[in-house]
Structure formats: C-alpha cells, structure tokens
Design a protein around this nucleic acid. Structure first.
Lengths: 140, 140
DNA sequence: CAGAATCCCCACGGATACTG
DNA sequence: CAGTATCCGTGGGGATTCTG
C-alpha cells in the first residue's frame, strides 16, 4: 500500500467492453474479412468478380469468409438457377454499418501511420543500428 | 461486356484505403494488443500490474506486445533503477488516440452484437438443424 | 520484479485437384 | 461458374525454465 493503485483486480478497467472488442476483432481481425467487406461496400458483386477484386485471395478463403459473413448477417448470398451458375453477394444494412465503422478506423490509420512509421524507424536506428557498440546496454 | 461491371481491375474499390486498413488490423488484430491498450487507457501501470489486469496473458506475450507498442510510439516504457526493478508503461498521445478509435469500434460491437448473435442462431437452426436429411455430409 | 530463452502445438491459410 | 475436398507449411502464441 505504497500509494493508490489504479490497478483493478482481474479485469475491471474495461468492464465488459473487452468482450465486445475481442468479438469484433475476432470477426474482422483475420486476413480477408475487411477486404471483402470493403470491396462489397462499393456494391454487389458475384463470386468471380469478388475474387478478381480481392487480389491475393484463394477460392478456399473467399468461400469461407463469405460463409461466415453470411452466417452473421453481414451480407446476403443470392444464387440464380441458371445454366452457368451465378451467385451475387451484397452487404446487408448491418454489413454496411460495419463497413463504416471499419472505415473510421482506416481514417485513423491514414492520419497516423506516418507517425508510427517515424517512431518505428527511430527505434530501428537506435536499436538495430550497430551491433558493435551495444553488447548488453542499449536502453534509450 | 454483357452490361456494366462495377468491378475494378485488381484493387480499385478501396483505392489505397485497403493498405491502411490492413495496417491497423495487422497492428491491433492480434490477440492481446487492444487488451493492453484498453487496460493502459485507464492510466499507467507497471509490468506486474499489467499482467494481473489482463487475465489470460503470458509473460512472453505481454513482453512482446509491449515491445511492439513501444516501438510504434503507442506507449512509453520507464524503468526505475531500483533494487526490486520497477517498470512503468504509459500510453502516449498517439496511443490514446488509437484507444479512442478502438473504443468506437467497440461501440459498434456493443450496439450490434445482438443482431449478429441472432443471425448466427438462425443459421444454426436451418443449417445444422437435423443431421437426418443429409446422408454423410457433415459440416466442419 | 521484469524480463529472456526454449520447446512445442495447432489453427490459419496457401496450393492443388475434383465436381454439379 | 461456383464452389468442395485434401494435403501441408508457417508462425502465433502457450507453458516452462533461467537470469540480472
């Protein structure tokens, strides 16, 4: 009891927000989800166009991502019973609202990634600069 | 050229936003970063308190996460040369701004995770409902 | 107390081949 | 065209042990 501890037993700083935060991140934190959502943000697309619009994605990942997004009600899948199959994917209102939320995050990134890059470079200079001067004392 | 394609050669729907989006997600999309940031959002904490405040985190992951965050200028590390070592971590202005951006995302989650859960449950009913109708094709 | 070093597992995702 | 099925490598991250 040295002074006051802003501490907080097991998990109190972020009451139950942490659960929500992790929920979104588990949802959009993967490699492709936001790319697909952003792409569909411009309008409905069919499977093949989607694959062409999201550069490095494989069919496997595109299919899996779309399935999960459909399952969560973020987009709709519409299959037309035609001779050459045609399936169109489109964001739902829920999906569009997520898209906007993600865009605001992207806005933050656009506004600060320069700062981050600068800090990162500064650390590389003083940290990985010369492996000669630092044997075992490198703290700023 | 059947009709107009809203398509977009390789990557045009999200001009260069996609790069920023991926940048943030690669940064905060991992398992612990946002938890640490959120915890430090309440105020500076020392290593051990941090570990106690972030429930399941291991020393390894806490250390790695803190290092990356410091490297990117999102938090500062202050070591006091005392007999029992004491190290305090604190968010920078940059870190706090990211924290707010993340909180807005959490706000979205808090407002919509009910909807998502509902959709998800609806899919489980109609999809994995009866394992009788489908012979030998079980989901995952 | 605040880490660094090591070992190890398994889920994420890429590549490829097959199908309705 | 729009998927499905399968194999397989990588690395994120947990558990444990050692150190200044």
């Amino acid at each position: 009891m040295v002074a006051e501890r802003t501490l907080a037993g097991p998990c109190t700083a972020w009451p139950q927000d942490s659960a929500f935060i992790r929920e979104v991140l588990d949802r959009i934190g993967d490699k492709w989800t936001v790319l697909v959502i952003s792409t569909l943000g411009a309008g409905p697309l069919r499977y093949s166009d989607l694959q062409a619009s999201v550069p490095g994605i494989s069919q496997r990942m595109l299919t899996l991502t779309l399935k999960e997004l459909e399952r969560d009600g973020l987009l709709t899948r519409t299959a037309f019973p035609e001779v050459p199959p045609r399936v169109v994917y489109e964001l739902t209102d829920l999906g569009r609202s997520l898209h906007e939320a993600v865009l605001s995050l992207a806005g933050w990134a656009a506004g600060h990634h320069g700062e981050i890059a600068a800090h990162r470079r500064a650390h590389e200079e003083s940290g990985v600069g010369r492996a000669k001067t630092n044997q075992l004392l490198r703290k700023h």
